[in-house]
Simulated scan of single mutants.
Amino acid sequence: MHNSYWFFALLISSTIIFCFLLLKKRNFQTVLLYLTMVGYGYIIETTIFNFLGSYDYYPNLIRHNSFYDSELGAFFSNALSLPVIATLIATFQLNWFWIVFFSGYFVGIEWLFLKLHIYTHHWWRLEYTGLGLPIYFVLAKVFYKWILLPSKGFKHYFMLYLITGSISASAHILPMLFFLNRFYRPGWFENEGRDSIAFSAIYYLCASLFYCLIVKVKWKTKWIKYILSGLFTYIVNLVLIKFGILYSLVWWDQMYYVCLSLLLIVLVKIIDTRLFNPN
């Protein structure tokens, strides 16, 4: 059980820092930047972790599936500690000294987790983390400048997609990890957990694009987008079940994802408006 203590330490420290940021800045742009960095991190993690098998985490919090447990460990890193520090660096406009310092700090944590055997590399190396994190932190500063000003064109759509993806992915995958409400079996990997998470990542990436597009379409009758979103989600689930890809295991599963699609339309519309008018 000692494994979990280290991951909870990341959770607690990240939560304290994020609460500090909210109290100091008291603006919605801080939240938007945090979600942007989560969404960006998810895309990177989908590529190197889910599909390329870069490393594994061992928080020992989920006992019924080892890959789900590893996925939760990745969540502590990519949805909490890294985006929170990136948000800290960007919102306080910290210089290169702090970028190098926090990059070294996370390399040190990674090295410690390796020594504690609660994390292991496959083809990944500490050097990749050391080289990648400064880029990640610099991008946070770039995104923050975009968020502070009214955004249009590519900047607007890119940030809207990343923010939508951060919410969509978390709300889609976390219930699967804890409640086993569904799993996917496209047959890409032998490990059922990895197979399920890999497909759910593709699902959320496509769903996020759908939410962004449907919000941007001008509707004479606004409630039609909600009907189309819920109906489309329900039909996609039925098709995936029909082809033996989706296995829905609890009575509330499909209802949850239909309601989630409606909620995301509301949230994406709010975020879209705030990106256009940040003040």
Rank of each mutant, 00 (worst) to 15 (best):
W6R: 11
I43S: 04
I44Q: 04
E192R: 12
F76W: 08
L162H: 02
A79Y: 03
L205P: 09
L149P: 00
R26A: 05
D56P: 03
Y40W: 14
W123A: 02
K152E: 14
Y257V: 09
I99F: 02
L35S: 01
L126S: 14
V258H: 04
E127G: 10
N78K: 10
I227S: 12
P278E: 06
S168T: 03
A9H: 03
D56L: 13
F137W: 07
V142M: 10
W98A: 08
N181P: 00
M37Q: 14
Y40N: 04
S13D: 08
G165L: 15
W96E: 11
S200M: 06
G73W: 03
E127K: 06
G41R: 01
F92H: 05
W111I: 11
W146C: 10
R125D: 14
N3S: 15
L162D: 01
S168L: 02
P150R: 09
Y257Q: 15
S66F: 07
Y128L: 11
I235G: 06
Y105I: 02
L231C: 06
T120N: 12
S14L: 10
Y128R: 11
A9V: 12
M176Y: 00
L249W: 06
K145P: 04
R182L: 05
H122S: 14
G130Q: 14
S196M: 06
G187I: 04
V38Y: 02
M255C: 11
N50L: 09
I48H: 09
Y128S: 13
G230N: 12
F276V: 08
Y58A: 12
F67K: 00
H156S: 07
L23K: 13
S13I: 14
Y256R: 03
